[in-house]
């Protein structure tokens, strides 16, 4: 049995890293917002979902107009990504403006409630646009890079390389941005102490809006890549994926951007491993359908034994 597991391990790793890249980029959105506002942005999973739908819609329209065959694929993918990022980024900013900013001084419970509200509204708006235009809310998009490449016993969708590449580029870019630029410094200052940052002539509201824009744009771009990778999307994909990305953020230490990246990859690999090996390892008692449960158990375990995450610092609450 171990031999069998070992044999399938490379494939599991490749699939896991691809999925992990998705989790990691979505987890960054959670972690950035949490780091700066101490708020779990429940709507972030839905922003990811909106990104997937925007990207799919753009490709479907291009395809319908017959342009897709004439344009270079890479250009189309990049354009789609950019448009989806801009739109989801603006969406994230809008959500912050409408549902979170008025509640910045409200009791902690209240913004969570409006966040739930936002995510429900987004699910339904996307649902009825999709259902209205295509007749079904489950949409199958156009896959640009659908071909599969074989390396020995491993099969890789060529799109997976784009997922990984884009994820790495975005993460590296974000990391540089946060550490090296003026705006990034402002972001870190606001995360540390809003009032003091404001005294240092940082426009706190603008920094928070920018944070939402960037986190959401990353989520949206990941959505586009996700739709490319897995083909079929529906308005409810954001919920469970958001939950797992959040788990990844907690695993890496919430508020810590690099931690979120690491947590995403760990979770992706663990989950792929679970879905491939849970059946054989337990003699068929537990199947792949428990992979969602698996992620949840990781969340509980982290909260139990290391609530500050792998890279986070334990914060003492001061009165």
């Amino acid at each position: 049995m171990i031999a069998q597991t070992l044999q399938s391990l490379p494939q599991v790793l490749v699939d896991g890293v691809t999925l992990g890249a998705v989790y990691a980029t979505v987890a960054i959105g959670y972690t950035m917002v949490y780091g700066i506002l101490e708020l779990i942005n429940f709507a972030h999973g839905e922003i990811f979902m909106s990104g997937a739908f925007i990207g799919t819609a753009i490709l479907l329209v291009l395809n319908g107009a017959g342009w897709l065959a004439h344009l270079p694929k890479l250009l189309v993918l990049l354009l789609t990504l950019l448009v989806a990022m801009a739109l989801t980024g603006l969406l994230g900013m809008g959500i912050e403006r409408v549902a979170y900013r008025p509640l910045r001084h409200a009791p902690r419970l209240i913004p969570l409630i409006s966040a739930i509200g936002v995510s429900f509204v987004l699910q339904d708006v996307v649902r009825f646009i999709a259902e209205w235009r295509t007749g079904n809310y489950i949409v199958t998009g156009v896959t640009l890079y659908g071909s599969e490449v074989n390396f020995g016993s491993i099969t890789v969708k060529s799109n997976a390389l784009f997922v990984l590449g884009a994820a790495v580029v975005m993460m590296a870019g974000l990391d540089l941005f946060v550490r090296k630029t003026k705006w990034g410094t402002a972001m870190r200052a606001v995360a540390q102490d809003k009032d003091t940052a404001a005294l240092m002539s940082i426009n706190v509201n603008r920094v928070i809006a920018l944070t939402f824009f960037m986190g959401s744009a990353l989520g949206g771009a990941t959505g586009v890549l996700f739709a490319q990778q897995y083909g079929t999307i529906d308005p409810y994909i954001g919920f469970i994926l958001g939950l797992k990305a959040f788990t990844a953020a907690v695993l890496g230490g919430i508020g810590n951007i690099r931690g979120a990246m690491f947590g995403g990859f760990v979770l992706g690999i663990l989950e792929m491993f679970a879905s491939a090996e849970l059946g054989p390892l337990t003699g068929g008692v537990l199947g792949a359908e428990y992979k969602d449960v698996f992620a949840f158990i990781i969340l509980i375990a982290v909260l139990l034994f290391k609530p500050e995450g792998l890279f986070g610092q334990a914060v003492k609450e001061k009165v």
Binding site: V98, I113, G117, F120, V121, D124, V125, R127, F128
Partner: peptide, 11 residues
């Protein structure tokens, strides 16, 4: 439209 209506109520 339950989700939409409930979402709007919550917000």
């Amino acid at each position: 439209m339950q989700r939409l209506i409930f979402g709007i109520i919550l917000i």
